[in-house]
Design a protein around this nucleic acid. Structure first.
Length: 284
DNA sequence: ACTATATCCTGTATGC
DNA sequence: TGCATACAGGATATAG
């Protein structure tokens, strides 16, 4: 599932392939991935032709591919979105949804998405920061990320810590995998009420998030299967470093207690029941 | 104003 | 063997 490290890996992979190249053709093979594009598939195909890509950008899990005219192709990979660079006559992979023909060679950028939670749209004037991304908070790897301010906002929410970490308007880029990894590292229970979290613990959790995301990015992200690959089709290696996510029944790498899986927010939370206990009153 | 939940979607794994 | 169900979960519309 693409979270910040996976999206950043893809952004960095696209950068040298797309910069300065012009779209000569676009074909939408399935309408769903362009559902948020106002004009629909036909408009999406027509309106992009002739535009030239600049440097790809990212905030949290949103990716956008600016054009040198000030607009941008806005991308969210959802659960299973991928970009691949192919030759135009290569056979189509299953679940290929949109084709982008590039000038200066026979290369073709392909958007592949099995579950189709992902989406593509033209963002008018969105080269710097698409309007669609303005409500998304800075991510923990952004140089301007305000850790102390985010910790304070987190403490003032009437929610629980994992919900807060997954709230992209508080801090972006974190999904289920890195939330669980970060909470394990910070020895914090996923259902800890945010109002009962000390300033020290809030900051510790956010620092753990920064560390986990940075380490995962160094390893090219987390891959479990073919649903996440880089633009060249290669997998990331962070799954080898997971301490919590998917580790139920295995000993906690810190204390040896068997890790457990619990249902939370219609998904799973993995934690060490000994290291990550609910704090009744975390003093402020 | 804020928080929580239902919904979208397909492929794979599991149960009977 | 085959069918049904559970599960994976990001963002958003809607309900509370």
């Amino acid at each position: 599932m693409p979270e910040l490290p996976e999206v950043e890996t893809i952004r960095a992979g696209l950068a040298p392939l797309l910069g300065g190249r012009t779209l000569t053709g676009v074909r939408v093979l399935h309408p769903r991935p362009v559902r948020s594009h106002p004009g629909g598939p036909a408009d999406f195909e027509a309106i992009l032709i002739g535009r030239t890509f600049a440097e790809p950008r990212r905030r949290g899990k949103y990716l956008w591919l600016p054009f040198n005219d000030g607009d941008a192709l806005l991308v969210h990979l959802g659960m299973s979105g991928q970009f691949r660079l192919n030759q135009a006559d290569d056979p189509l992979a299953r679940n290929t949804r949109v084709l982008f023909d590039l000038d200066d060679g026979p290369d073709q950028l392909r958007f592949i998405d099995q579950r189709m939670f992902g989406g593509l749209a033209l963002s008018s004037g969105g080269a710097e920061l698409p309007d669609e991304v303005k409500h998304i908070a800075l991510d923990p790897l952004d140089p301007a990320f305000d850790l102390a301010g985010t910790a304070t906002r987190l403490q003032h929410k009437r929610s629980t810590i994992k919900r807060a970490l997954l709230d992209q308007t508080l801090v972006s880029g974190i999904g289920n995998i890195y939330a669980d990894e970060s909470l394990w590292r910070a020895r914090t229970h996923y259902d800890q009420p945010t109002r009962a979290i000390s300033t020290r613990r809030a900051a510790m959790v956010l620092r753990a998030v920064q560390d986990v995301l940075a380490e995962a990015l160094e390893q090219g992200g987390t891959s479990f299967d073919s649903l996440y690959v880089n633009v060249n089709g290669s997998s990331g290696f962070f799954s080898r470093s997971l301490n919590a996510y998917g580790q139920q029944g295995r000993p906690c790498p810190r204390c040896g207690t068997p890790m457990v899986r619990e249902h939370f927010m219609n998904r799973s939370s993995y934690l060490c029941p000994r290291c990550q206990r609910l704090q009744r009153s975390d003093s402020r």
